[in-house]
Simulated assay, not measured.
Amino acid sequence: MFVRKRRRPVSEINVVPYIDVMLVLLIIFMVTAPLVTQGVKVDLPKADAQPLAEETKPPIIASVNASGEYFLNVGESQDSPLDPVDLATIVAAQLKLEPTTPVVVKGDGTVPYNNVVQLMVLLQRAGVPSVGLMTDSPEEKK
């Protein structure tokens, strides 16, 4: 007579495939993180200033490079220069969506002061109540 033993179901989860997937995702994120950082290359003036509080919303950064071209960190074409009218329109639209968003000017240290003032006037006409100026700390080495 043949006695058949009943197998008991295995109630353990094999986590090895999940660990493999997590390691692959970690590598992907580590490789792509430096590529996600975008912006316009400007040499900021050095000054001691208080940083923005961390609990504030990410600011809208309006940049002017050494050639006097305007850029904005909003939208799809962050690396391409904007027409002053387009810049004002985009900032006004962003402020209608989020009125408490801080606005910061990032001007190259070698750009004429007039270009920074013109950018600030554009932002004022777009409805920005106050504008901050972005600087590097004096002890920061590049």
Rank of each mutant, 00 (worst) to 15 (best):
residue 139 E to L: 11
residue 103 V to K: 02
residue 70 Y to S: 06
residue 48 D to A: 12
residue 11 S to F: 08
residue 68 G to K: 06
residue 63 S to Y: 06
residue 32 T to L: 13
residue 26 L to W: 06
residue 94 Q to Y: 01
residue 57 K to Q: 13
residue 71 F to Q: 04
residue 26 L to F: 12
residue 11 S to W: 09
residue 4 R to K: 13
residue 45 P to L: 09
residue 32 T to E: 02
residue 140 E to S: 14
residue 83 D to L: 07
residue 55 E to M: 02
residue 142 K to A: 12
residue 103 V to G: 02
residue 88 A to F: 00
residue 11 S to I: 12
residue 101 T to K: 12
residue 41 K to I: 03
residue 45 P to T: 09
residue 105 V to M: 05
residue 111 V to R: 02
residue 18 Y to C: 05
residue 119 L to D: 00
residue 45 P to D: 06
residue 43 D to C: 00
residue 126 A to R: 02
residue 64 V to A: 05
residue 90 I to V: 15
residue 83 D to W: 02
residue 110 T to V: 09
residue 79 D to Y: 02
residue 92 A to L: 02
residue 107 G to M: 10
residue 80 S to C: 00
residue 61 I to N: 01
residue 89 T to R: 13
residue 19 I to C: 08
residue 136 D to N: 14
residue 89 T to G: 05
residue 53 A to F: 05
residue 133 L to E: 05
residue 54 E to G: 12
residue 76 E to H: 06
residue 127 G to R: 06
residue 46 K to T: 11
residue 122 L to E: 13
residue 66 A to V: 08
residue 31 V to M: 11
residue 140 E to G: 04
residue 51 P to M: 10
residue 78 Q to R: 11
residue 138 P to C: 14
residue 115 N to G: 00
residue 94 Q to E: 15
residue 25 L to N: 05
residue 77 S to V: 02
residue 94 Q to T: 13
residue 111 V to I: 14
residue 63 S to N: 06
residue 46 K to V: 10
residue 48 D to W: 12
residue 2 F to S: 15
residue 138 P to G: 15
residue 11 S to D: 11
residue 70 Y to Q: 03
residue 20 D to C: 15
residue 86 D to M: 07
residue 108 D to I: 10
residue 24 V to Y: 03
residue 100 T to H: 07
residue 120 M to S: 14
residue 132 G to S: 10
residue 32 T to W: 04
residue 46 K to F: 09
residue 28 I to T: 12
residue 15 V to L: 14
residue 17 P to D: 10
residue 138 P to K: 15
residue 7 R to M: 09
residue 36 V to K: 00
residue 82 L to Y: 05
residue 13 I to G: 03
residue 44 L to M: 10
